[in-house]
């Protein structure tokens, strides 16, 4: 083999699932001297190309060549539990194949002795949003003293959406997700926001939500105190995902985050904020 051995990271599911898997792959690749190749294929979970969202300057495969990369790799790790042969959280042992390519398919942070969270964070912080995302940031004031991320659109009412359908996860994992989504309802966030407003800590509130009704409800309740990125889309289209990435950046920049538990989006928003940023999670802290 004339090239450096590669680590293919085949990122799966939604935006932040993909970002965290990508960062994990980058960390392992860096530690083991491998070339990182990102497999980013738009699908019903994330119907955006990586270039729609990021000015990413590493090698990316976006088409069926990915199948060849997988086929010719020395070792394939698949964390996607619903797929045949997958082994969730199987340790990625890059050292076992020093000269061969490794292919990892995941929506999750990887498990490996070569993984390093600080390196992952550095990788994520080095990512640059694409121009359309940066332009969205100009539409709302920031940073804000409080930001809320309300992720609740999972459950029977939303099963008809392919990316929310129960078939995407093993039954127990889906049940766990439903459990936490039910604790991320608007009422809980309103109670906590009302407290913060009364304490003079929420002159302005930035809201990122997955339903139009949530924006309407909070707009009616908080008036000019509420800021958000107005949109017409609530799907997984490229344009909507640009809004989502802008939302993420604005959540990161806020002084306090009210987060939805069991949301990779909320997790990422806290992970990339400066250490010590106030962080409260639905169903646990409020």
């Amino acid at each position: 083999m004339s090239h450096r051995p590669r680590l293919f990271i085949d990122v799966q599911h939604g935006l932040c699932n993909r970002l965290r898997a990508m960062a994990s792959g980058a960390s392992i690749a860096q530690a083991t001297g491998r070339e990182l190749v990102v497999i980013w294929r738009p699908d019903h979970h994330c119907n955006a190309r990586i270039g729609d969202l990021l000015d990413y300057d590493g090698p990316v495969i976006e088409d069926d060549v990915a199948d060849l990369c997988r086929r010719f790799s020395s070792r394939v790790y698949n964390y996607m539990e619903i797929e045949e042969g997958a082994v969730y959280e199987e340790p990625v042992q890059a050292e076992a194949f020093p000269d061969g390519d490794i292919y990892v398919r995941s929506a999750y942070t990887l498990v490996s002795s070569h993984r390093d969270e600080a390196r992952e964070d550095s990788f994520l912080r080095a990512l640059r949003p694409a121009a359309p995302v940066r332009e969205l940031l100009d539409q709302v004031p920031h940073p804000n003293p409080v930001a809320a991320h309300i992720r609740m659109a999972t459950g029977p009412r939303f099963d008809h959406l392919s990316y929310e359908a129960p078939e995407n996860w093993p039954a127990e994992r889906h049940a766990e997700m439903l459990h936490w989504r039910e604790r991320s309802q608007p009422e809980a966030f309103e109670r906590r926001l009302d407290q913060l407003i009364e304490e003079g800590k929420a002159d302005r509130v930035f809201l990122a939500a997955d339903l139009a009704a949530t924006y309407e409800r909070f707009g009616a309740r908080y008036g000019n105190r509420l800021v958000h990125l107005p949109r017409q889309l609530y799907d997984r289209s490229a344009r909507q995902l640009q809004y989502a990435l802008a939302d993420l950046l604005l959540l990161i920049a806020a002084d306090r985050l009210l987060a939805s538990t069991w949301s990779s989006f909320s997790d990422m928003a806290q992970r990339l904020a400066r250490p010590g940023r106030s962080f409260e999670q639905s169903g646990q802290d409020f």
Binding site: V37, D57, P59, I61, L68, R128
Partner: peptide, 24 residues
């Protein structure tokens, strides 16, 4: 043939990445 196809695609991806880095 498929392996050659893969290597060519990866070479193109690498070239594109290098161009992005230079532009940046």
């Amino acid at each position: 043939l498929q392996r050659a196809q893969m290597e060519e695609a990866l070479a193109r991806a690498g070239q594109k990445a290098a161009e992005c880095r230079a532009a940046r």
